[in-house]
Design a protein around this nucleic acid. Structure first.
Length: 448
DNA sequence: ATAGGGTTAG
């Protein structure tokens, strides 16, 4: 069977083409080749093609099974198409398949990852729905929830899920501990993170490279470079192979600490270890160099990156735009944005917001507003950061009425002000005697 | 032939 042969050889595109060529002869296709194809497409994030294969499987009357549905539902959840996932669950029921633990885990994971307010509440509701349908959650279900609460900066809720998991007789795994350690690290609670590391070792669980990566990241972010470096040395001593992420994490920490020589030493040693540097490696180094104003070496690095077969990505361009803006060269930054569009990269919210911030810092509100128009033409809607940048820009120019108008506009659009919004309004408006329409509203935000 | 964790920019 051609489709399966291609997919097994990691030639997903060819497998997909063979699927299309197979025509209407169902006997040529079976679930044993369609499911691996679906699975490969999901891994490559080709959700449009997943949708196509799914519809065609139904149309051609390929026999589908519960695994087909689970792969499709997981794919939709991974790209945040939660409503589509729910539709697929209706389809699977109509076909006589009941959702199982894979189906529910995919859906819970989708809600945990999608972000937005109340997402964990929804994830919790699905857990209840799952239990009511007599599908038992497994350790993966709990790991997903723990990670979700940690990313929601709700460690205490994550700890409660951790307890619940044990009550259910499920044993925590390395992933469970990694999630919790990461949550604590991101909150700067490093002592507690180390406490959990000891606890997991005490239980006979072996920390893996991810455990070390999250710890290195946690200590690095706090500027505790001695500890971060020791952890890195520990990995090697324990015979655990560092990955490109381990290197990137430590390189980034050195760069932020202004230790560019140490960062470049690591960058060099990656070659000796046979670890391929990726765009992130270069982006970390370029950020560090830009901060030092060392543009000649930035150029050299970009050339090296291209020679290694890597291409600058949106993040690379965002770094360069930010660097020009910080030098008071927003017009040059605008040209960098044009250049990225020319080579086929689509600017994201960060790109536009960064450039707008640069214009605002130079007091050029017109240019900032033009960028906003450009961003909306590009189909990127203004977000909270966009408004924060503009509101602060107008305040700095003494145009408090306009800033007040922007605040109202932001609320009308259903955007939720964040802590930065609150601080800008407090420092730039309220403390200067101007009372914005939504002052009371903002106080309730700052309280939460 | 199906699920969970780690790095970068405002």
């Amino acid at each position: 069977m051609l489709v399966l042969a291609y997919v097994e050889n990691m030639k997903t595109r060819l497998g997909f083409e063979a699927f299309k060529r197979a025509g209407d002869y169902a006997f040529k296709l079976s679930v044993t080749s369609c499911n691996p194809l679906l699975s490969a497409l999901v891994k490559e994030n080709e959700i449009g093609d997943v949708d196509y294969v799914y519809k065609e499987m139904i149309r051609r009357r390929v026999e589908v099974n519960v695994i087909s549905f689970n792969i499709i539902i997981n794919g939709m959840c991974k790209v945040g198409k939660l409503n589509k996932a729910r539709d697929a669950i209706q389809d699977m029921k109509a076909w006589g398949f009941l959702p199982d633990v894979f189906t529910y885990n995919a859906l819970i994971n989708g809600y945990c990852k999608k972000g937005g307010i109340g997402k964990m509440y929804k994830a919790d509701a699905i857990l209840k729905e799952m239990i009511e349908s007599e599908v038992r959650p497994n350790e993966i279900t709990f790991n997903i929830l723990i990670d979700g609460f940690c990313k929601d900066e709700n460690i205490s809720a994550a700890m409660r899920v951790f307890e619940e998991m044990r009550t259910q007789g499920l044993k925590p795994t390395v992933v469970t501990y990694n999630n919790l350690i990461n949550g604590l690290c991101l909150e700067g609670r490093l002592d507690e993170a180390i406490g959990l590391l000891d606890e997991m070792v005490g239980l006979g669980l072996k920390p893996n490279v991810v455990t070390y990566n999250v710890l290195i990241n946690g200590f690095g972010k706090k500027g505790k470079m001695k500890e971060a470096t020791d952890l890195f040395d520990n990995i090697v001593k324990k015979g655990i192979a560092p990955t490109v992420i381990t290197y990137n994490t430590l390189i980034d920490a050195y760069c932020k600490d202004g230790r560019m020589e140490d960062a470049f030493a690591l960058h060099k040693s990656m070659v000796d270890r046979g670890i391929f540097r990726d765009v992130s490696t270069y982006n970390c180094l370029i950020t560090g160099l830009c901060r030092e104003g060392n543009i000649p070496v930035v150029r050299k690095l970009i050339n090296e990156m291209i020679n290694n077969g890597l291409k600058a990505d949106v993040v690379t361009y965002n770094i360069l735009i930010d660097a020009f803006c910080k030098e008071g060269e927003s017009r040059k930054a605008a040209r960098v944005l044009d250049e990225m569009v020319k080579i086929g990269l689509r600017p994201n919210h960060v790109t536009y917001n960064t450039l707008m911030l640069g214009h605002c810092r130079e007091g050029n509100l017109r240019a900032a507003l033009n960028v906003r128009t450009q961003m909306e033409k590009d189909g990127r809607r203004a977000n909270v950061v966009t408004y924060n940048v503009l509101i602060k820009g107008f305040c700095k120019k003494g145009k408090l009425e306009d800033a007040n108008g922007l605040l109202n506009e932001m609320l009308e659009k259903g955007l939720i002000p964040n802590r930065t919004t609150y601080e800008i309004v407090k420092e730039e408006m309220v403390e200067k005697g101007f009372v914005p329409d939504i002052e009371g509203h903002l106080y309730s935000i700052s309280a939460s």
